[in-house]
Design a protein around this nucleic acid. Structure first.
Lengths: 328, 328
DNA sequence: CTGTTAGCGCCTTCAA
DNA sequence: TTGAAGGCGCTAACAG
């Protein structure tokens, strides 16, 4: 790879002049500048970021750490990368994953610190990692993407409670009065939104608990739950639950001769890829993944840029969007 | 952040001795080493990778470029990262995406080169990008993850033809004789595998073409195709197609009173998240995403490590796996 | 076993 | 408008 020195030699100028010409900063005659730029192109010169960073004493890379690898993460990564690129930064990525035992957050930390990133975005919700980040953010700007707000850490989270609240009101607006909330893994926030809505609307609180089984069994469980719901003396006219569970509910309702959405409406949660492919296509609350990624990057660069250098931590909820398809 | 100099000052040793002690390379007395390591911990010192790389004249970062952001990419990224970490490398990520117009491959190139990565893994299949990579790999080790092999470039690709070939033979083994191949976007390789299988097995070639519509309409199209297939005088007893299209077929067959898999078997392609959630759960050919990621990383590090420094380009197909669920 | 010297590629300060 | 000198954090080559 060509270096500044190569350009200097080729043009007969000093490295310094070449450097200024390339950055367009400072005083360089038009002719000199043109000569330099031409030579840069000829030698296919690209400045060395590591050297620049070293000299300027600041890194132009941010690092994203994702806990496990949810499919939806890819949209967050893309949005973060996009925003970072606009700010002139590159993005490194790490995964903490149960599939790869050496990839615990702790094991990753030295690698992350050695990279000396300008900032960190951590997608995680485990108490352990939150604790770690609490220490970490004294040394380096950190923003988390979490399930819930965390008072003393910058973080952005999806307003799951608000999303479900909206969904329940939507169902109510459609005339539904017996709305079941079918609880699944990590549904605490959603449940809160459900409860607030039914209380306000004065309709009965009907909560059914899934057994929090692994993904591969959720569908079957959903089928069974649908059959149980259908057999109630006074069956529900709507259900809110996860997309995964909803896939089972739809199959179970079909088997029980209950028609969706005529007899019962179903609203899912997440808008995973499968939602639009179910039968009928699932009305669901979409995770604003790209938005979350973008907002987290904005927060991070405010800290990095010093605009909000030492301000108090902020928590930003991002609203969900109800994607209306055919199931409700 | 603490530097080597800080450690040297704190211990009263020279920077060099400290450096050797930390790297465990060279001759350092046990006492000195212990003192250094203790101080390192106290000051929370982490070597600066940028400075190390600069001095050693080699980068310890690889870069992955992904064309668009398919959900399945996240598994490839995780596997690549894992392998890279084992080799002591970190991973930067870029996306070329239609959603973000400034993220064309060309626009990304300067950023990538400035990072001076030790190697590149490019997940893409457009002719344009392949052309670019052909130039690029003269300057820096490159491995591509593509749809098809590319003779003059290191690449790994999923053996789609072989996967479908196996699936057809599987169906034949189950007694199916009228097997339809339902063509969708980018199905050329798959079609080849289908054609080879039916030729060998001496059963009729039955190809139905989808209209390559956008994802959101594929499901509806699948429903219609299912109805058409069901109305044939001599209807098929099996269909192979994409997971997306299969979701529509299942819905359409259900509506037409055709039972899957009793009357007709359906085998999908990709094993996307939705496959296990359909009704019935879909038997499908799984993309070996993690395997592809790992193999591509292995290839790259062979080039980087010089083991295969100037050998001829290699093309490695990775076999698919038939995930048997309920639809076939 | 330990310290000194030099320099990776670049940019900032200062002087010309 | 240009150039020379110095140093970011680190390590390799060489002395001691």
């Amino acid at each position: 790879m060509a270096t500044l020195k190569d350009i200097a030699r080729a043009t007969g100028l000093s490295m310094n002049t070449v450097s200024r010409a390339i950055r367009g900063s400072g005083y360089v005659s038009r002719q000199t500048a043109e000569l330099v730029l031409k030579t840069v192109r000829e030698l296919d010169y690209h400045p060395n970021r590591a050297a620049q960073d070293l000299r300027r004493r600041k890194s132009t890379q941010i690092t994203v750490v994702a806990e496990s690898y949810d499919y939806l993460h890819i949209e967050k990564l893309a949005a973060i990368k996009e925003y970072a690129a606009e700010c002139g930064y590159t993005m490194g990525v790490h995964f903490t994953s149960e599939d790869y035992p050496q990839s615990t957050f702790n094991a990753l930390l030295p690698d992350i610190l050695e990279q000396n990133p300008a900032g960190l975005i951590i997608i995680a919700s485990s108490g352990f990692i939150i604790g770690k980040v609490r220490e970490l953010c004294r040394k380096i700007p950190c923003v988390m993407i979490t399930f819930n707000g965390v008072p003393d850490i910058d973080c952005v989270y999806i307003d799951r409670a608000g999303g479900v609240y909206d969904a329940i009101r939507y169902l109510y607006g459609k005339g539904r009065r017996r709305i079941v909330f079918c609880e699944t893994f990590r549904a605490r926030n959603r449940k809160l939104g459900y409860q607030r809505a039914v209380r306000e609307l004065g309709i009965p609180e009907l909560i059914v608990s899934g057994t929090m089984k692994p993904l591969s069994e959720i569908r079957r469980e959903g089928e069974q739950i649908a059959k149980i719901l259908a057999s109630w003396d006074n069956p529900p006219d709507a259900v809110q639950t996860s997309d995964y569970m909803a896939s089972g509910l739809l199959a179970g309702f079909a088997a029980a001769g209950v028609e969706v959405p005529r007899d019962v409406s179903v609203i899912g949660f997440d808008d995973r890829e499968l939602a639009g492919m179910l039968n009928p296509p699932l009305t669901t609350l979409a995770q604003p993944s790209a938005e979350v990624g973008k907002v987290s990057a904005q927060m991070l660069f405010e800290r990095i840029g010093g605009v909000r250098k030492d301000g108090p931590p902020e928590n930003i909820p991002v609203p969900m969007r109800l994607v209306v398809r055919n199931s409700a």
